[in-house]
């Protein structure tokens, strides 16, 4: 009996997968994403150098052009080196790891918190609903970079604090959507049926309402990952994110941007290109997801 709504939700999603793959943009986005994820996950195996190990990098090799061979003769710097002699190819793979971890980690954490609060707001209504939703309005009305700067000024810098800040900024988007969806689902017959059966409310919300709310939340999730990666890069660029000896993409860009016009373009250019690719890929996938999952787009 209780599996009925879940089953009804599964059918459109399996046809959605087929429709999803029909667009070339989805293929491009997915394959780029896969490539970057593989690069990030297997960075220690792929990278010729551990750019976070200070004993492995050599300042004497600083600012070498792409394709140069290290003074030790053992590494070819495919994308050149930065101002500290880090191999940029390795640094980008490791930086991508940081960026993706922060992006996905904060999006998932914010998702859990935001969805729970959204469901509770929809269920409880009244004062609790009002309090949660005004909080959502407040957070969404503030410019995120300003809030992030303030938070990091209070908490101190570091990747952990960046994730915390991003969660604080992002949960509101999930909460608003989750609440709107749950309000619709609440009026459905299966909801009344489940209530009639006397199921505990937590079970109804999580097992029955939530699966039916998921499609738009997935879209938001994808876009929030991209947003989190951009914000982390911005914060690291401003010197508030990753530690200087363990650069993320944003910090790599920051380290090189003053030298763009002096001819040493590669220090900023390649990390920037990677960041751009990652964000475009995620957005392509997210956009396609939205097209497929949006009921209005089905018409």
């Amino acid at each position: 009996m209780t599996t009925v709504p879940a089953a009804s939700a599964r059918r459109p999603s399996s046809s959605a997968l087929r429709r999803f793959l029909r667009a070339p943009s989805a293929w491009i986005g997915l394959s780029l994403m896969t490539l970057l994820v593989i690069g990030a996950v297997f960075a220690p195996q792929i990278a010729p150098q551990n750019p976070f190990d200070l004993a492995a990098i050599d300042v004497l090799d600083a600012r070498m052009t792409p394709g140069s061979v290290s003074s030790g003769g053992d590494i070819t710097y495919l994308l050149g080196t930065d101002g500290q002699g880090r191999d940029l190819f390795s640094a980008i793979l490791y930086g991508l790891r940081t960026s993706l971890t922060v992006g996905v980690g904060s999006a998932v954490l914010a998702g859990i918190i935001g969805i729970l609060l959204g469901l509770i707001a929809a269920w409880a209504g009244g004062l609790l609903d009002a309090v949660i939703m005004r909080l959502v309005d407040l957070i969404m009305s503030l410019p995120s970079i300003l809030v992030a700067l303030l938070m990091l000024a209070l908490l101190g810098k570091g990747i952990g604090n960046v994730v915390l800040t991003l969660v604080l900024l992002e949960w509101a988007y999930y909460a608003r959507t989750a609440r709107a969806q749950a309000l619709v689902e609440r009026k459905r017959d299966y909801f009344e049926a489940a209530r009639g059966l006397g199921l505990p409310i937590s079970r109804i919300l999580l097992r029955h309402v939530l699966p039916n709310c998921l499609p738009p939340l997935l879209v938001i999730g994808a876009l929030q990952v991209a947003r989190a990666i951009t914000l982390e890069a911005t914060l690291s660029f401003l010197g508030l994110g990753a530690p200087v000896t363990q650069p993320s993409l944003g910090l790599l860009i920051a380290n090189g941007f003053q030298f763009m016009l002096s001819g040493e373009y590669w220090i900023s250019f390649f990390p920037g290109l990677t960041l751009l690719t990652a964000i475009v890929a995620i957005n392509l996938v997210g956009d396609r997801l939205r097209e497929v999952l949006d009921p209005r787009a089905l018409k």
Binding site: L54, D58, V59, G83, Q84, T245
Partner: peptide, 12 residues
């Protein structure tokens, strides 16, 4: 930047 270079020398 100088501090990072020194960190390299000392780590070695």
């Amino acid at each position: 930047e100088t501090a990072q270079a020194i960190a390299q020398f000392w780590t070695r």
